[in-house]
Design a binder for these strands. Structure first.
Lengths: 231, 231
DNA sequence: AAAATTCATTTGTAGGACAAATATAATGAT
DNA sequence: ATCATTATATTTGTCCTACAAATGAATTTT
């Protein structure tokens, strides 16, 4: 609890002007109740008000612009924009830079997500979804040993079927990292060579004619090969 | 599939020099196989190499610095750093700016996550965790109608018990947004006034002495009040 | 050889300049 | 008076120069 509070406390001495201006602007935007489409004061005004150079203001604005929080129309001024939720995550997601701890957490996160989507799948599956999923399963020759691409195709389709676009994109972000960690744990081969007691076809069949409970149980077994390495 | 490929294609004309330098630097860092701790060329060199002003380079670097991908030690040069996975998400998470679609997705995401953590909870629960959880449950006078704070305390503890720090922080990010959407769907009151057939105490008891399957079933019923509004 | 001093390096910050395009105002034509 | 044309002001994007301050390296002094 107390540590949580301290998380927002940054080492003041190390904060550059740009950092402080960024914070000030964020505060200003929310305090002023700005909504997407509202126009902002120009850079010079901000700089004067904050008593810093226009350079510093621009560096701070550049950050917010990257995240899609503001938009600058050259020679017409800036407006508040509607940031995309995952753009920040996309920008940071770089397996070779992330810490081992973060990578492990991502690894687990995927498992948590896959276990959690059962309800949504059954609530939202359509005939067409099932047909597409069947096509994906049918194209997989060896049912017990699937390639990385086949794995992504099948599970990706499941994420897509949740009807949650953010969720689907989230998966697209996590998958490479997941794979990076997984192959790191096992070996450097490109194939996931572990035979699976519950195949993609099994999962498909249950999703088509079975129940939520059955599906989740099957999915658990299907994922157990990953779980086993960390739980 | 084709749309996915196009996602990475930005409108070239609208790309500012800063945008392009940011992309160039990202490419440069990964292509060069930079690892955390490696030192970077100085700003002037980059500017000359890229044939842009130092201002543009600094604006791009400012972005990477915000995300924690690089660190600048004044007068000693810059080094590649280890970005925190969620820092980008934190920076963007602002309920009043996010789109209605994004908000809805976050809402669903929480439900998916809560349904997915059962395995981890049972695999990693400790005596101390259970004691703390019991204390939280005990402090809630009316078992069927809990306040927002009590809700956060209980479920927050669950996330914490997964032992996945990123996951826990992820929840801290999602919760306010979730609440924002939920209260928006129902009313403006601060209390979640809907009586719940499965109480926190029930969940606690199952987590202590029950099975994974029992817990998930109970959690489903517990969350059904939220599910009902969107599924 | 050790200590003190000087020097070069590099980020952070400030401030000035101007191109280009847009919106607005002013001017001119009918 | 109305419309079309022209001039003006605005504002972001980009470039340039300058300098403070602290660090680390190089140099000089003792």
């Amino acid at each position: 609890m107390t540590t949580n509070k301290l998380d927002t406390l940054e080492p003041l001495g190390s904060l550059s002007m740009t950092d402080r201006v960024e914070n000030s602007l964020r505060l200003y935007f929310t305090e002023s109740g700005f909504k997407p489409g509202d126009s902002l004061p120009n850079e010079q005004e901000m700089a004067q008000k904050l008593n810093v150079s226009r350079n510093v203001v621009r560096e701070a604005l550049s950050r917010l612009r990257m995240l899609g929080m503001i938009e600058a129309r050259p020679r017409r001024g800036m407006v508040i924009a509607q940031p995309d939720l995952l753009v920040g995550l996309e920008k940071v997601m770089n397996p070779s830079l992330l810490s081992q701890d973060n990578l492990k957490d991502v690894f687990e996160l995927r498992l948590i997500l896959e276990m959690g989507i059962a309800e949504f799948l059954f609530a939202r599956k359509t005939e067409q979804d099932l047909n597409e999923l069947e096509a994906i399963v049918a194209s997989q020759n060896d049912a017990t040993v699937v390639s990385k691409e086949e794995e992504i195709a099948f599970h990706g389709k499941l994420y897509e079927m949740t009807g949650n676009d953010t969720f689907k994109r989230f998966q697209t972000l996590l998958m490479p990292t997941f794979d990076h960690v997984f192959t790191g744990y096992y070996n450097q081969s490109k194939k996931i060579e572990i035979p699976n007691p519950v195949t993609h076809y099994d999962l498909f069949k249950i999703l088509k004619t079975g129940t939520v409970e059955e599906f989740r149980k099957a999915m658990y077994t299907h994922l157990a090969v990953y779980f086993a390495s960390i739980l």
